[in-house]
Design a protein around this nucleic acid. Structure first.
Lengths: 212, 212
DNA sequence: ACAGTTCTGTGACTTTTGTCACTGTGATGG
DNA sequence: CCATCACAGTGACAAAAGTCACAGAACTGT
């Protein structure tokens, strides 16, 4: 693993050098083991989160514990929600979890706030972050509103493939949760996809074919 | 109707006076008759949109013409999407339409951009706009993901009630479109709601009871 | 090797939504 | 006064998804 400064430069090239220097000063580096939560529903946040390494998944939960995947976060991106919540000093309405071991930078809210006027590039970065998340959210909404479960399942698998490769170690139960469905249904749909030759089912993992 | 300056002050009190003055200079005022589009899917936008008067609805459309209501926009608010699209110089992926006669201010993109660094209050306003729309979008997503059609229908009616009063002049077809369902289903569900005493069905309009 | 656990497969059934086909009814405009 | 039209109601059926109940397969630790 590179040193922090190199990583910053690699993943956040658009932040001006002075800002990157101050980031090193002000932000806290945090390592997340796989599965660790960085945000939990109902939690108060006081920092913005920048992702340096690994993969985070951001999802919503309702009162009865149903989950719902919103989007993945890759290195070089930031969690728009963390900025939202931080600004409003409100409870977060979402959860974020490390899918792989991950490294994040935590920028205290008051610092992030100050940078908005101090560094134009920070400002653009924040705006850009909102924009990107907004668009991903729209995509997700489209998927839910306009497509059936089997299409969404395929989309979900492809997305995971993109980040984790062809061998997905996910249980049907997991998938069901994230798509807000039930295990049996997912099992059946996966079976259909297997028959169509899209994938092969194994115990504890799913093998996706043709990355296309 | 008040003069423009008074309206600005009333609906956008948080914008600094100098900015309000410049708004009067740089922005174009536009009157929208009921039903007029201000954004259409596929259109290129070159302005940010601030709403002065009336009610706009913002919705998504898929390729086959299905609609999907995202949220309403009230006076004093701005369309986050218009800012998104404007910045990216991309095609808009949504439509916005005047539900009642409305008045909007159009701020050319390059001006809006310039203000970001020039006026802190503009900057905060833009951030705030993203934040609010983001949260509304999350709400909508929740509704779709976690609740059944009849709940969504009720929610939809309440929302309309909030803006348009107890007598809703909407056809079942209209509702079906906006909830991405079909007329027959909506008819049936409305019937059920009537039996539960929530509303009374009339020709061409629906009467909602207990504003609660 | 065995009990316990997790993951997966499956049949039968229900509920929810969507679709089709048709009817009725009020409004509007020649 | 009648043709037309948009709107609404409804029964019958189909499709999609969720639920229930079980069974078997693989993995775990002791």
């Amino acid at each position: 693993m590179d040193d922090l400064e190199t990583q910053l430069q690699r993943f956040f090239p658009r932040l001006e050098p002075a800002l990157r220097a101050e980031l090193l000063q002000e932000a806290t580096l945090k390592d997340l083991p796989e599965g660790e939560f960085i945000i939990r529903t109902g939690q108060y946040l006081k920092s913005s989160i920048l992702l340096l390494n690994g993969l985070l998944k951001v999802y919503r939960q309702d009162e009865e514990g149903h989950e719902f995947l919103l989007y993945f976060l890759e290195p070089g991106h930031a969690c728009a929600l963390s900025m939202l919540c931080a600004v409003r000093e409100e409870q977060s309405e979402i959860s974020a979890q490390a899918v792989t071991p991950a490294q994040v930078l935590l920028v205290p809210m008051h610092v992030a706030e100050r940078w908005l006027t101090k560094y134009p590039s920070w400002h653009m970065f924040v705006i850009g972050t909102y924009r990107e998340r907004f668009e991903e959210l729209l995509q997700t909404l489209d998927a839910v509103a306009f497509t059936s479960l089997d299409e969404r399942l395929l989309f979900y698998l492809r997305k995971n493939q993109q980040f984790k490769g062809n061998q997905l170690r996910i249980s049907h139960q997991q998938i069901a949760m994230e798509l807000n469905s039930s295990r049996e249904v997912i099992s059946r749909l996966l079976k259909k996809l297997e028959q169509r030759g899209v994938l092969t089912l194994h115990r504890n993992f799913i093998e996706l074919h043709q990355p296309a």
